[in-house]
Amino acid sequence: MADETPTPAVTESEQPANTHDGKPIMEVKVYAPFQVYFEGSAYSVSAVNDTGPFDILPRHHNFLCMLVPCNLVVKPVEGDSKIIKVHRALMHVKADRVVVFMDV
């Protein structure tokens, strides 16, 4: 699981994470060339890659992976969880910013 990887020395985790109601948050953008599926602050993102299901939480280490067909779940700061069907996508995580490039 990606979020179980020990945090290495070079990481953004030394910087204080953004919080909402005391809980750390991150910026998430899920988009395709012509459509933005989600953009905003979130507590977590869950998806599936070749290794299996995984979660991305704030202060996650830099991460780049290919997603397999799955349901991507975003837990936003406000409102219910967003479920986005993924056919093919690339996920990039860096400095508390998660970007999912759909259909690439």
């Binding site: 990606a2 290495p8 995984f54 280490h61 830099n62 991460f63 780049l64 992976c65 290919m66």
Partner: peptide
């Protein structure tokens, strides 16, 4: 972006 500062999967 390298293996030194990123986790790649697979």
């Amino acid at each position: 972006v390298s293996e030194k500062n990123y986790i790649f999967e697979p």
